[in-house]
């Protein structure tokens, strides 16, 4: 065995080296908040299955200041998720052609974001009309 100890560059904090990596990390970390929100909804569903008292307890819990802060952060993160999702979509979807011309990345992102705005407004007004 040789006593050589070759220099190996540390990978610590690799994602802070380049703005591209930082954007990548910001996009991926949104998943933690998506998971947290899904778990909160799952708890609500389980409470619903347990009956009225249990579900009302969950509803009361949503009214606490900490849950408001939590949801404001989650809302901001979801908006970032929407933006970043359609921002990388030109790279994640197969190349698309319309009339023999390649659809430009900006058009894909723009269409996706427009679809999100319409879908969100639709959900808001459907829920408002439901109850």
């Amino acid at each position: 065995m040789s006593n050589r100890r070759p220099y190996v560059r540390s990978m610590d904090g690799w994602w802070k080296r380049d703005p591209y990596f930082i954007r990548y990390m910001a996009r991926e970390v949104t998943a933690v908040f998506v998971a947290a929100y899904a778990v909160l909804l799952l708890v609500g569903l389980v409470r619903l299955g347990q009956g009225e008292a249990a579900f009302n307890g969950w509803l009361q819990y949503l009214k606490t200041p900490w849950m408001l802060v939590f949801h404001l952060i989650v809302l901001a993160v979801f908006c970032y998720h929407t933006w970043s999702w359609f921002n990388i979509m030109p790279k994640t979807m197969p190349i698309m052609f319309v009339g023999g011309k390649r659809v430009q990345p900006g058009a894909i992102t723009g269409t996706g974001l427009a679809a999100s705005v319409i879908a969100c407004l639709a959900v808001l007004f459907i829920v408002r009309g439901m109850s």
Binding site: V34, Y37, L41, G44, L59, L62, K63, M67, L68, F70, H71, L72, V74, L75, F78, C79, H81, T82, W85, F86, G112, A115, S116, A119, C120, L121, V123, L124, V127
Partner: peptide, 19 residues
């Protein structure tokens, strides 16, 4: 699904209805 309706869902269940 999250990109399309996620922000609306969080706003409804977490902010608008409870408050």
């Amino acid at each position: 699904l999250a990109a399309l309706i996620g922000p609306a869902l969080v706003f409804i269940t977490g902010i608008a209805v409870p408050f």
